[in-house]
Design a protein around this nucleic acid. Structure first.
Lengths: 142, 142
DNA sequence: CTGTATCCTGTGAGATACTG
DNA sequence: CAGTATCTCACAGGATACAG
């Protein structure tokens, strides 16, 4: 046994906890926050919006809406959050009818790398995951 | 304008859609699935469990529970999912009292890289995000 | 200790209708 | 067109109790 309960050499991220009694965060006060930022990534709509804007450069509200099959409400909320976090620029053209364009900020651009790392991992492992699930399901079906 | 509505050179991931009318997925049938896998990543508990196991190598059920401040129910569900997806190994020791150890599979290990990429991005950009929020909030407070 | 089974609540998210 | 405002519902997830 030996090093059980001791972080391994490869420790790359210390994590925070939500509330309650976590043991792991003494070293890294920011790690609570990481968790928070991480959940932004988890937010399906946020990721999809960022990917879309990364692909298309600039999109209008309804273009995003159509492309993603997202509801008005969710798109509105998502964009507001992303703008607030400084990932997305909002450009308002006070024409009639009004026109609003969205694109990525520099930070938004930089977000592409981690996200695509993740995306590629997903692509590379889809088959394995499917196989694992099948095996698991079959095994548990007795 | 010019290339508006045309994917940019840097296109790195084509995305799928949920249902509804998406336009973007002709090229990449798997991309619907990516979305699905991606949302696993978003799952806070899954990520935290993987990170924990990556740090500590092997942990028992209650160790994880204590470390993460997760409820029994959620931990149980999360671990089952992770095992099903082939990211986590479950080793049952039929002693009294019973003892179950969890650790990462090879695929689970490989998952560390994309996750840590993300984590580091989050760390690097926390300050910027905070600043952006502050600016945004102040601006909208008029 | 390692779970499963209930119960209960807050929130994520769609549908719809209205405004500038 | 680009949103905001409600209403509603399903489900994620905590608390608790029980079981092997």
């Amino acid at each position: 046994m030996g090093n059980r309960n001791l972080p391994q050499e490869g420790t790359f991220l210390t994590l925070g906890y939500t509330k309650g009694t976590a043991v792991l965060d003494e070293r890294c006060p920011d790690c609570k926050r990481i968790n928070e930022v991480l959940s932004r990534v988890g937010d399906r709509w946020s990721v999809l919006v960022v990917i879309s804007l990364a692909e298309y450069g600039t999109l209008r509200f309804n273009e995003l809406k159509r492309n993603l099959g997202i509801s008005q409400r969710m798109l509105s909320l998502t964009l507001k959050e992303l703008e607030r976090d400084g990932l997305v620029n909002r450009v308002y053209h006070p024409t009639i009818p009004p026109k609003v364009e969205y694109n990525l900020t520099e930070m938004g651009q930089s977000f592409r790398e981690p996200v695509s790392t993740l995306g590629y991992w997903a692509l590379d492992n889809l088959a394995k995951i499917d196989a694992a699930r099948e095996a698991y399901d079959e095994a548990s079906a007795k």
